[in-house]
Each structure stands twice: as C-alpha cells, then as structure tokens.
C-alpha cells in the first residue's frame, strides 16, 4: 500500500481515496483471528471408510453468548469436503458434507441445548462450555468409502466451520453482517489423503 500510494496520488487523489476506503472497509469486516479454530484434524481408514477425527476450539464472543442467553438461537455449520486437486483447472470436489447444529438456551431448565439439524438429535448441557466441547469433538466422521478413491491419486481433505450469520434473526443479521463480533469462522484446515 505504502509503495503504491505515491503513484495513486500522482494519478488521481480521488481514486486513491476510494482504494483506501475499500481497504478500510475490507479490514473492518474481516473476521478476527480468534473465535473458532481447528485444534487437530486427523484422517484414518476404518472398516473400508475414510473417517475423520478432530477437535475444534469453539469460543463464542461475549456478544454471541449474550444473544444466545437472551433466547437467540445460533447455528454453527461444519463443512468437510474431499477434493481431487488438478494443476490445470479447478479442483474436483469428490465429496462435500455439511453438519449444521443449532445452539439454544432453555430458560426453564437453565440448560443449553445442542441440536443437530439434519437428524433432529438433541442433547442438553448444564454449561455452554460443555456444549461447545461436545460440539468441538468430531469422532469418526465418515467421509467416503475407500473403494471410491483412486489409489494413484492424492486427495485433499478440507474442513471449516463457521457461525451462520444468515440463520440469525433478521434484525440481528443486518448488524451481524457489519460487526466483527459475529464473524466467527475457522481458518480452513486441509489434510492430504493418500488411499
């Protein structure tokens, strides 16, 4: 930026201003480094299946926790995909799976409820930490049958998780889009898979 600035100013101060503004805006809405992070991610083959184990540190911001305790449901998605890299074109996505969980606070029982949206499976926890720990534990997530993988090929496993802002109540959504407190997502984690 610093090296390009003089060029911009000599060319057109207004253009430079615009660029600086866009940069500022980009910085303003970029997610914070902390929040969700993938602590470990491992792949193994078990019973002819490629399965993934992992541990994710979920840590909600104070804003998100307050919203949760005020009755706002949060949705966290975990997305796992297996890609076949191609040097000459975009990678091929062999498998793409997503797990979505709804986090809610049950005021009557004073418990936190974790609900897996696809299966409707639900568990309640006495503390948010317990819930997040459970959420952050991935045990044997089946990805694909080994027979469907090419032995000669190297695959790339990719995992990311984020708070789904679009699933927030509409009033909160507008604020959430502009607020860093709501931009909770992990850096994408990748693993090389050789069958």
């Amino acid at each position: 930026m610093a090296s390009t600035m003089p060029v911009w100013t000599s060319a057109s101060p207004r253009a430079a201003l615009l660029v600086a503004l866009l940069c500022l805006a980009a910085v303003g809405i970029s997610p914070p480094a902390a929040g969700f992070s993938v602590a470990s991610l491992e792949q193994r083959f078990a019973n002819g299946l490629l399965v993934v184990d992992g541990r994710i540190d979920y840590s909600l911001t104070a804003t998100a926790t307050e919203a949760l305790e005020s009755g706002v449901d949060l949705v966290i998605s975990q997305r796992l995909s297996l890609d076949r890299p191609r040097w000459w074109w975009r990678d091929v996505e062999v498998v793409g799976q997503e797990r979505r969980y709804r986090l809610a606070y049950h005021a009557m029982s004073r418990r936190y409820v974790l609900n897996r949206l696809a299966s409707g499976e639900s568990r309640s926890y006495r503390s948010l930490d317990a819930l997040l720990t459970r959420l952050g534990t991935i045990e044997a997530w089946p990805v694909i049958g080994r027979d469907r993988l090419d032995d000669q090929q190297t695959y790339r496993l990719r995992f990311e998780t984020e708070l789904d802002v679009d699933a927030l109540p509409r009033l909160l959504r507008t604020v959430a889009w502009a607020s860093a407190d709501w931009q909770l997502r992990s850096e994408p984690q990748t693993l090389e898979v050789r069958p």
Binding site: M108, S109, R111, N115, R126
Partner: peptide, 10 residues
C-alpha cells in the same frame, strides 16, 4: 434437574 429432551418433552 430439568432436561428438555427433543420430541419427548420436558
């Protein structure tokens, strides 16, 4: 304690 269990009620 109380436990809200999905589909089964409180």
């Amino acid at each position: 304690g109380l436990d809200p269990i999905e589909n089964a009620g409180l």
